[in-house]
Simulated assay, not measured.
Amino acid sequence: MSSLANWSYTAQATIWKRTGATYDYGDPVFSEPLVIMCDYEGGLSKRLGDIGAERVVKNTFWTEYGSAEHGDYILIGASDNPSPISAGADEVMQVIRYADTFERMADDFAIITGG
């Protein structure tokens, strides 16, 4: 972890990765929960407009964890619950990569969830 990330990523989040497998009834199989270091910001999960509801950003997580992908699930805080759904986690909608501008040790990532 870079020295800048060491003082800024002080919160914990739990991520569940999709394994690519599915249960007989079609639901995805997830990996064991993994606790990562991060910082986060909350947002809205739904906006109602004249033509219906729109999904908008719910949470953004900043981290050096670079393996998150669309379809994974993430939760603020540490959890050992094997099910991201019953744990109350949100689906990862987008992951953005940022360069480690100062130390060039590890890139930073914004993991964005939707409601």
Rank of each mutant, 00 (worst) to 15 (best):
W62M: 15
C38W: 06
G66M: 00
E32N: 11
R47D: 03
V92A: 09
F61Q: 04
K17V: 05
A78M: 03
G52A: 02
L75Y: 13
I36P: 04
E41C: 09
R97K: 15
C38L: 05
Q12H: 10
V92W: 11
V95W: 11
K58C: 08
Y23V: 05
I15M: 06
D108S: 15
D24H: 08
D39T: 13
P82K: 08
G26T: 04
I112W: 02
G43R: 04
I36R: 06
V56F: 01
D80S: 14
R55G: 05
K46E: 08
E64P: 08
V92H: 12
G42D: 08
R18N: 07
E103N: 15
M37H: 09
L34D: 10
Q94E: 15
E41F: 09
D90T: 11
R55Q: 11
E41W: 12
A13N: 04
A106Y: 10
E32M: 07
I74G: 02
D24E: 10
D108Q: 15
R104C: 11
I76L: 07
D107C: 11
G42F: 05
A13G: 08
D24Y: 06
S3Y: 07
A13V: 03
Y73M: 10
A13K: 05
V95N: 11
V92T: 10
Q94L: 15
W7Y: 09
C38Q: 11
T113G: 01
M93L: 13
K46M: 08
R104Y: 13
R18W: 00
N6H: 10
L48V: 08
V56N: 00
A99M: 15
E32T: 13
L75K: 13
L75C: 07
T22C: 04
D107W: 11
D107F: 06
T60A: 01
S2K: 03
A13R: 02
D24L: 04
P84E: 07
